[in-house]
């Protein structure tokens, strides 16, 4: 096989990267802004200016429960300093079994994309499309609680 798989603690769906405004280089230059519920208009600028030392230590927060296309869910994130180290979904309620199957497929993908957006040296990920709205907003809500800059 010509291409060995790239294992990434990290990857990136630009949808989430856009919302979360991760910088793909050092995690310390990531800037997060916007507020949950308004992510569709959250235009942010990231760059090397205006960096502040991130809060130290490992912290967790759970975002608000958000409606998504097939039910509702909440997202819990763990950060160490300003770096997201884990993303889990402690609460998910779906209308039917099919939706649960969909969610089971989507959540790990989005999880890896949130994590990967911080570290992989890539600008975006090309993949089959999905709807990431509620998940991303909920991640944003968790991030806002932690005041990750």
């Amino acid at each position: 096989m010509k291409h060995a798989p790239w294992f990434v603690f990290a990857g990136t769906v630009a949808g989430l990267v856009g919302i979360l405004s991760f910088h793909t280089k050092p995690a310390t230059s990531a800037a997060l802004s916007g507020s949950a519920g308004h992510a569709s208009h959250a235009t942010t600028q990231t760059g090397s200016n205006g960096q502040q030392a991130p809060p130290a230590g490992v912290r967790t927060a759970t975002g608000t429960t958000e409606q998504y296309g097939y039910g509702e869910l909440a997202v819990k994130i763990t950060v160490n300093g300003s770096k997201i180290t884990d993303v889990t979904v402690p609460y998910i309620q779906t209308a039917d079994q099919y939706s649960q199957q969909l969610a089971a497929q989507i959540i790990p993908t989005l999880r890896s994309e949130v994590l990967s957006g911080q570290t992989a040296n890539i600008n975006g990920v090309s993949g089959a499309s999905y709807t990431s709205r509620a998940y991303a907003m909920s991640v944003q809500a968790a991030l806002d609680k932690l005041n990750v800059k």
Partner: peptide, 25 residues
């Protein structure tokens, strides 16, 4: 630089491609 999502492993990319115009998966 664009990563191509691995079809089965959510924590992996199948490849990374340098893109000058368009890429769709």
């Amino acid at each position: 630089r664009v990563g191509i999502r691995h079809p089965w492993r959510a924590d992996a990319l199948a490849a990374i491609v340098e893109v000058s115009a368009a890429i769709a998966t």
